[in-house]
């Protein structure tokens, strides 16, 4: 990923001290109440999380349902504010009321349910919604809508009603709606959880293209393992904390640990892992079929 690093070097941050997103000691608590409104207890959804994300990175956040990953994501867009700790987006503290709109523009957000985030009755009107809110001049809105729809491959559907689209197409429209705001960073909160495999592939392809071609920082929240193997870095969350982090290869080496965290690994990784346990000289963290085949070649030469 030399291009990514180049981009990072080029963003003028000489000391390298502040990436696009910086989270320090974030704690988020909410109070549970019973039906009469009495306090039942306090739930800590995010518990002492710190992370740094550099401009142009593709970062995945994995975790089972209820691990706190969505709560974390909502902090990056100033939808939720930390109970303790601080979140900076592009150098701005999300607690600063004056910066809220800048932050929401810098870190765009795509949510899980494709039906509940499309506002427009026509695809192009929906994509124009963000720029309209930002006060972008009319002519430029049209340019942005066109380029964003093209970036996710939905331009030919610009006159369609969102109700006529498949789930994957709707999510690509949602992504276009965010890109049209020209964010530096896009946070996707389980964008594929409600899609079929075809839709999932479409969305992930669009997201990867944004990262590769447009150099937009991507933070992908998911529980599908196949989607994170292209990430530069992976954080795994559990009980509001970061339980594991590293490159996909490093993270997927921890098969047992991932299973403990209610997660999974790709089938090929699992097969390699099981063979390894049987005494095969397999490396840890095999991610693709190709790697598996090569590893097995080595096993063959070892016994021959």
């Amino acid at each position: 990923m030399s291009s990514t690093q180049q981009n990072f070097a080029g963003c003028g941050d000489r000391e390298g001290k502040m990436g696009i997103v910086k989270v320090r000691d974030l704690i988020y608590e909410y109070i549970r109440r019973d039906e009469e409104g009495n306090v039942e207890g306090i739930t800590t959804a995010v518990d002492d999380v710190s992370l740094d994300i550099r401009q142009g990175e593709f970062v995945a956040v994995l975790g089972h349902n209820g691990s706190g990953k969505s709560t974390l994501a909502k902090h990056l867009n100033a939808i939720l504010y930390p109970t303790e700790g601080t979140v900076w987006v592009d150098g701005k503290d999300t607690k600063d009321d004056a910066a809220v709109w800048d932050i929401r523009q810098t870190a765009g957000m795509v949510f899980q349910n494709p039906d509940n985030q499309i506002i427009g009755q026509v695809v192009e009107e929906d994509v124009g919604f963000g720029p309209e809110n930002m006060g972008v001049p009319t002519k430029e809105i049209w340019e942005r809508v066109e380029e964003s729809l093209k970036a996710v491959g939905m331009y030919q559907y610009r006159k369609y009603s969102p109700n006529k689209l498949s789930g994957g197409q709707k999510q690509r429209v949602s992504i276009a709606g965010v890109i049209a705001m020209h964010p530096k960073c896009i946070v996707l909160d389980e964008p594929t959880a409600m899609l079929d495999p075809q839709g999932r592939r479409e969305v992930i392809r669009a997201v990867r293209a944004l990262n590769d071609v447009e150099r937009i920082t991507v933070i992908l929240i998911t529980h599908y393992m196949e989607e994170v193997i292209y990430a530069d870095r992976v954080y795994v969350m559990d009980k509001g904390r970061i339980a594991l982090q590293g490159t996909p290869r490093e993270v997927f080496s921890e098969v047992e640990k991932l299973k403990e965290l209610r997660l999974d690994v790709p089938q090929v990784t699992l097969l390699a892992h099981e063979l390894r346990r049987e005494g095969f000289p397999m490396p840890k963290g095999v991610l693709t079929d190709q790697e598996f085949l090569e590893a097995l070649e080595h096993c063959v030469s070892a016994v021959m």
Partner: peptide
């Protein structure tokens, strides 16, 4: 698509491994 395992087994057979490609589970 078939399960990913099926693809691995097919690939192995194509590479000349004498394995059955009927395996569908890990």
């Amino acid at each position: 698509a078939a399960p990913q395992v099926t693809y691995i087994m097919k690939a192995l057979r194509e590479k000349g491994y004498d394995v059955s490609d009927e395996a569908t589970t890990i």
